[in-house]
Computed example of a mutant assay.
Amino acid sequence: MAEEVKVFRTWSSSFALRVIWALKLKGVEFDTIYEDLSNKSPLLLQYNPIYKKVPVLVHNGKVICESLVILEYIDETWKQNPLLPEDPHQQANARFWAKFGDDKVLQSIVGDVLMKEGKELEEGVLASLENLKYLEEEIRGKKFFGGETIGLADIALGWLAYYLGIFEEILGLILIDQEKFPSLAAWKQEFANAPIIHENWPDRDKLVNKFVAMREAKLGKEAPK
């Protein structure tokens, strides 16, 4: 009997992309259900009543939410092309960098740079560069965060290889400079060039328009009257 594997996602979510990449790296067949988050489907609300967001993985009727949790489930369920190493310490390290990516790197770049202006943006840039320094030190001397192959931390941080360039274009600044962050810049290129990765990037122009609109809406609301 064929397995039921469904992914609820949006066209633009970098969190949902993680799930797509992981399933494709594992060679798992799946169906994609695209959601409009301004008009969420009853199924999405049923499957993820707490957060009401994507991605959601449905595997033979079982529902798994939250992208990092889904990645671990995928790795435990389908053993081929492992995302986590066997060594417990290396596993913990991968989980640490994946969480650091979400809690610190993503928050500082999107929340404190893309969605700010003036002095707040300048402070956000400094905080982002500080966070990127830690990633530069961690990736130095390695092809991927997972070693020679793409692993959990690479997939979690993978948005940097595409979305960051879009943010930089919108803001007119460069965060991952080739001279300051040579290892991180090389990793970005290496990751983005992997066929399964670059074949699944969303349309760049559509993303630019989406994030410009988000930024303007955010700054418009916060602008003094």
Score class of each variant (00 low, 15 high):
Leu57His: 10
Asn93Asp: 06
Tyr47Asn: 11
Ser67Cys: 04
Val63His: 15
Arg95Glu: 01
Leu43Cys: 06
Pro85Ile: 11
Val54Tyr: 07
Trp78Tyr: 05
Ile70Gln: 06
Asn93Gln: 14
Cys65Phe: 08
Pro42Met: 08
Phe96Gly: 08
Pro49Ile: 09
Leu68Tyr: 08
Leu43Arg: 13
Pro55Val: 09
Lys53Cys: 04
Leu71Thr: 08
Lys79Ser: 12
Trp97Gly: 05
Pro82Met: 03
Glu72Met: 00
Ile70Glu: 02
Cys65Ile: 15
Tyr51Gly: 04
Ile70Thr: 14
Lys79Arg: 13
Arg95Ala: 00
Pro49Arg: 15
Tyr47Arg: 15
Leu71Tyr: 05
Ser41Pro: 06
Asp87Val: 09
Trp78Glu: 00
Tyr47Ser: 05
Glu76Val: 06
Val58Leu: 07
Leu71Lys: 13
Asn93Cys: 12
Lys62Val: 14
Gln46Ile: 13
Tyr47Leu: 07
Val69Trp: 06
Val69Ser: 00
Ile64Asp: 01
Val54Glu: 04
Gln46Ser: 13
Leu57Glu: 01
Cys65Val: 15
Trp78Cys: 02
Asp75Gly: 03
Phe96Ser: 08
Gln91Thr: 14
Asn60Thr: 14
Val56Asp: 00
Thr77Leu: 04
Asp75Ala: 01
Lys52His: 05
Ile50Arg: 14
Leu68Glu: 05
Leu71Trp: 05
Pro49Trp: 07
Leu83Phe: 11
Leu45Thr: 13
Glu76Ala: 10
Ser41Arg: 13
Pro88Ser: 08
Leu83Met: 11
Arg95Leu: 01
Ile50Met: 12
Lys52Pro: 00
Leu84Glu: 07
Leu71Cys: 01
Ile70Pro: 06
Asp87Phe: 04
Glu76Ile: 03
Glu66Trp: 08
Val63Ala: 05
Ala98Gln: 12
Cys65Thr: 15
Gln90Asp: 03
Leu83Lys: 14
Pro85Trp: 12
Pro42Leu: 09
Ala98Gly: 10
Asn81Val: 10
Tyr73Val: 08
Asn81Cys: 01
Pro55Leu: 03
Ile74Pro: 01
Leu83Thr: 14
His59Leu: 03
Asp75Val: 04
His89Leu: 15
Trp78Thr: 07
Leu45Tyr: 09
Asp75Met: 00
Asn81Ile: 07
Trp97Val: 09
Pro82Val: 11
Ile70Val: 11
Ala98Phe: 07
Ser67Ala: 04
Asn60Glu: 08
Glu66Cys: 03
Val56Asn: 05
Asp75Ile: 07
Leu43Pro: 02
Ala98Tyr: 11
Ile70Asp: 00
Asp75Asn: 10
Pro82Cys: 00
Glu86Thr: 15
Lys79Met: 09
Ile64Lys: 12
His59Met: 02
His59Gln: 05
Val69Met: 01
Asp75Cys: 01
Pro49His: 14
Ser67Val: 03
Lys53Pro: 00
Trp97Asp: 00
Ala92Phe: 12
Phe96Asp: 02
Gln91His: 12
Val58Trp: 08
Lys79Glu: 14
Val58Cys: 03
Ile74Glu: 01
Asn81Phe: 03
Tyr73Lys: 12
Asp87Cys: 03
Leu68His: 12
Tyr51Leu: 12
Tyr73Arg: 07
His89Arg: 15
Pro49Phe: 07
Lys53Ser: 04
Pro55Phe: 05
Tyr73Ala: 00
Val63Asp: 02
His89Pro: 03
Glu76Trp: 02
His89Gln: 11
Pro49Lys: 15
Asn48Gln: 12
Asp75Arg: 13
Ile50Asp: 00
Leu57Met: 05
Cys65Asp: 02
Cys65Ala: 09
Lys62Ser: 10
